[in-house]
């Protein structure tokens, strides 16, 4: 089975600071705020450089698009996609149905991936989306793994799974970094570069401006056998809220683990131990096991806070 491990690169600083070798593909841009400093989907020269750089290294490159566009944003999103197509993009990621409709009409042969904020909950949605040129979906992160498997099997659509890293859990209308600018002294566009940690009663969240993330790292290393047996092969690792060095190391561990287990090897505890070193607030499994997203279910089924 051919696997793909991908990640999101928001800006050139992140690209230059990370080891890309273990990844197969990259989403470029920051879909949660158009004003994000250095946003690769907004700056033509940075977009061109990153696409060309990654393609030269034999990687697939997908442009991600703004998740919550108003009418006034649409023209520039189409311009951005047009530019990316000229630079040789392999696919575009879409979170908004209006953007989907526009891209399907303007670029009918362009491969479209629907992102997690498109709120895909049922196979009926995925089947409908085929009419719009969609070739891959990321169901809403709220779904259980058995629901995702059912959707994939009923629709025959490629499905992407989040395997590791912070889970995007909300997009706000206003920017939290600006709400607390008095405390941090940072203003737009640099304010959201430094993730803010929010804590309450043992709960932990992260914020990057308009994006709310899980505080814990989603971690599925203990469950790769189940993931492999279920036939999933496209995986995302999130690290854009971390130091860029984090993401390459995490991907190397998953690459080794996936390849070893696919060739008949067995799970090694040191993979999880190694990953734990990169985690500041521990692990969770998101919603795959039907529990609160912040909890961690181990391979024995035990639940950990």
């Amino acid at each position: 089975m051919k696997i793909e491990i991908n990640t999101l690169i928001p800006d050139l600083h992140f690209l230059k600071g990370m080891d890309i070798s273990a990844f197969d593909a990259f989403y470029i841009g920051f879909p949660f705020c158009r004003k994000f400093e250095g946003n690769l989907s907004e700056i033509p020269e940075d977009m061109e450089f990153s696409i060309s750089y990654l393609k030269d290294k034999g990687k697939r490159v997908y442009l991600t698009t703004y998740a919550t566009p108003l009418t006034r944003d649409l023209d520039s999103i189409i311009e951005s996609v047009e530019r990316a197509v000229q630079y040789g993009i392999d696919a575009v990621e879409v979170h908004n149905y209006g953007v989907l409709r526009m891209i399907n009409r303007n670029f009918p042969s362009l491969r479209i991936h629907m992102g997690s904020f498109a709120n895909i909950y049922t196979d009926a949605t995925v089947i409908k989306l085929k009419e719009y040129g969609v070739k891959r979906v990321t169901p809403n992160y709220e779904l259980r793994i058995d629901e995702i498997e059912y959707i994939r099997d009923k629709s025959g659509m490629e499905v992407e799974l989040l395997l590791h890293g912070k889970i995007p859990i909300g997009i706000s209308e206003s920017c939290f970094s600006l709400e607390i600018a008095e405390k941090t002294g940072k203003l737009c566009p640099e304010a959201c570069k430094q993730a803010v940690v929010l804590r309450r009663d043992g709960w932990v969240l992260r914020n990057m401006g308009t994006l709310m993330l899980s505080g814990k790292d989603m971690c599925m290393i203990e469950h790769l056998n189940m993931i492999n047996k279920a036939g999933f092969s496209i995986f995302r690792i999130n690290g854009f809220s971390e130091n860029p060095a984090y993401i390459g190391s995490v991907c190397r561990i998953y690459r080794e683990a996936l390849e070893e287990m696919l060739s008949g090897g067995i799970y090694k505890r040191e993979w999880k131990e190694e990953l734990y070193k990169y985690s500041t607030d521990g692990f969770c499994n998101g919603f795959y096991f039907g529990k609160s997203g912040r909890l961690y279910v181990d391979a024995m089924g035990n639940i950990h806070e």
């Binding site: 998740a67 709220e142 859990i169």
Partner: peptide, 22 residues
């Protein structure tokens, strides 16, 4: 604070009572 239709904070923290779409 979080946009309508773009939030799974509730079930992230407390599944079973606050998972709005479920």
């Amino acid at each position: 604070f979080i946009q309508r239709g773009k939030c799974i904070l509730g079930p992230y923290l407390m599944r079973g009572t606050t998972d709005l779409r479920r």
